[in-house]
């Protein structure tokens, strides 16, 4: 079970969180101008890397904030978590 650092509440058990997929997928400002392929890319395609992955988590059982986590998809090691609103990174070291 992962130990995830909420940027506000500190380290909590994985059971308090829900997963939100890859971070940084911005909604296109004007969907109507996109081709079907471009829209499908936004909808369905994700980078799915082997290694470092920046992803969204929600502290669902806690402060209900959405935040980012950089997690290694092979080792599950978490390099750090970061707030989305101000871009500040809570990563240590």
């Amino acid at each position: 079970m992962l130990l995830i650092e909420c940027p506000w509440c500190g380290e909590r058990a994985e059971t308090e969180f829900s997963y939100g997929g890859e971070a940084g997928i911005a909604r296109p400002p004007d969907p109507d101008v996109l081709s079907d392929a471009e829209w499908a890319d936004y909808l369905f395609n994700r980078s799915n890397p082997r290694g470092a992955h920046r992803e969204l988590w929600n502290h669902a059982q806690g402060c209900r904030r959405w935040f980012g986590v950089e997690r290694d998809t092979v080792t599950y090691r978490i390099a750090g978590s970061f707030r989305l609103s101000d871009g500040s990174d809570n990563r240590e070291g």
Binding site: S18, G20, L56, N58, A60, R64, R65, W66, L84, S85
Partner: peptide
């Protein structure tokens, strides 16, 4: 949670 996600992210 979905509504909060749009507002927050």
């Amino acid at each position: 949670a979905w509504l909060e996600a749009w507002l927050q992210t």
